[in-house]
Amino acid sequence: MGVGIEVKDLNAWFGKAQILKEINIKVDPNAVTAVIGPSGCGKSTFIRCLNRMHETNPDARLTGSVQVGDIDVYKPGTDAVDVRRRIGMVFQKPNPFPTMSIYDNVAAGLRLNGYNKRHDLDASVEHSLKMAALWDEVKDVLKKKSGSSLSGGQQQRLCIARALAVQPELLLMDEPASALDPISTGKIEELIFQLKTQYTVVIVTHNMQQAARVADFTGFFLMGKLIEFDKTEKIFTTPSDKRTEDYITGRFG
């Protein structure tokens, strides 16, 4: 089951540049939340703060607190490796492991966590690929083809399967369809929509139609600040902030 997220007074920096300013947000479990905003507004940084990927950059700094389910993400003593293990992430550009077969790509996370039993792995790989709607396309070449031999859209679904295989409580997606063609995009959106029965999904997108299509809630970021966060329907029809309205009607960004 998915978990809720509560972010309090989150500030993030790269070197001296402050990327996020005083973010406070509460995300419901088992819902899809979209994060929209113009380029450079901090939306990617925001979701990277949720699973402590932000700190993998040596210049990165951060204050505030993030609660994901029962994990206090930034409490001293919380292990970043443990946090990332429980929060899945899908990146903007498909990044399957090119030297591994399709099967090994999906099993990578499980093997990292010490699952090695053939039977369990087989079942989990099949389940994950089915959830990512890729199973039918690759079931005959699971161990023959490498992750990079697939098309861009298939690679991205493979990455989603890889993230799902470790059964995360929260799935973060950083513009998962921005490098894909419309048909692949459609498949991924359909997938996101189905995932929310079991997961909480936070998706960054700069495609507003996509946010409107898949998300239950939408947050609008501008210059590192969360301007407005509400039901998607409300954001796109009667936004309460002028800047949100300007952005979604295409006056800037």
Binding site: V81, R84, M89, F91, F97, L112, A163
Partner: peptide, 12 residues
Amino acid sequence: SQREAVLALGAT
């Protein structure tokens, strides 16, 4: 992106 992919899976 390869490093991030592994880290995001919960790798040391």
